[in-house]
Design a protein around this nucleic acid. Structure first.
Ligand SMILES: [Mn+2]
Ligand SMILES: [Mn+2]
Ligand SMILES: [Zn+2]
Ligand SMILES: [Zn+2]
Lengths: 136, 136
DNA sequence: TCTTGACTTGGACTCTGTCCATCGTAGGAT
DNA sequence: ATCCTACGATGGACAGAGTCCAAGTCAAGA
């Protein structure tokens, strides 16, 4: 699913050079970059792009459902372009490496009705933590 | 499970008036307070306690395993004294209310071996999101 | 009571993110 | 191809959350 630019254009997203560069940086399925990392990579292609613009573009991509915000460490949020296939994250507690994982079954069904306290539950985020092969 | 002060003293935690107040604020099982909320409540009992001291004490309680850090919203971390019974969280997307929940089974077993990529997986955090009865 | 290492303090500092007035431009209209 | 203008970009100020540090204070063992 690498036609991010196409989809954005088709949805009437006004295409500026800045937005194009941000989308290109995120294109591909296995990155989980912070806003400042996105900015750094964007600057390599378009030196004048500002931090505010990167934040704006990321916020819009999230609103459009093309990118997911992930916060696994209580520090900077990470931006995940793998928004079209539901998945969870496996995080190394030492080096911070993040892997996409696909648990068996729907994690939502693990929460029995009597544990929902009248809530309308619509989403679930799961973060598995441990040590990666390199850090173990 | 309200003998937090006792356990801390038994473990040789040097007991200052500041630390006592922080522990007292957290004592009880159903709070999920931010550091600044803990500070505000602590100030009510000990007006001169500083923010830095609250952060220090909270960090130590976390290290001691007596309090859990929870970050459900990418903003301020919350401190949860319910550290002795594993549980997960159900969060209202509108008002931010947090409830402790106990899903069926061990969420760790949902992650098959072939999805662990050589990681030693030791913990899992699950956040269920939806609307609480008042916000629905 | 004395001593001392551990704890507390407030303010400066860092990191992450938001806001805003002003300037620039993408893309429809002509 | 050129013009218009509403929408987007910019950078710098600002805000929220948390960390760090040098100096002062105190809990608790001797
Ligand atoms: Mn991902
Ligand atoms: Mn809890
Ligand atoms: Zn690692
Ligand atoms: Zn609510």
């Amino acid at each position: 699913m690498s036609d991010l630019l196409e989809r954005l254009r088709a949805r009437g997203w006004r295409m500026t050079s800045q937005r194009r560069v941000v989308a290109e940086v995120l294109d591909g399925d296995h990155v989980h970059l912070t806003a400042d990392e996105v900015h750094a990579r964007a600057v390599a292609r378009l030196p004048e792009i500002s931090r505010a613009t990167v934040y704006n573009a990321l916020g819009e991509l999230v609103s459009l459902g093309e990118v997911i915000e992930v916060s696994t460490d209580g520090r900077a949020k990470r931006y995940d372009p793998n928004a079209h296939r539901p998945h969870q994250h496996l995080v190394c507690s030492r080096c911070g490496t993040i892997r996409d994982v696909h648990p068996a079954g729907d994690p939502l069904t693990d929460l029995p009705a009597e544990q929902r306290f009248g809530f309308t539950v619509s989403a679930v985020e799961v973060t598995y933590r441990g040590l990666c092969p390199g850090c173990a």
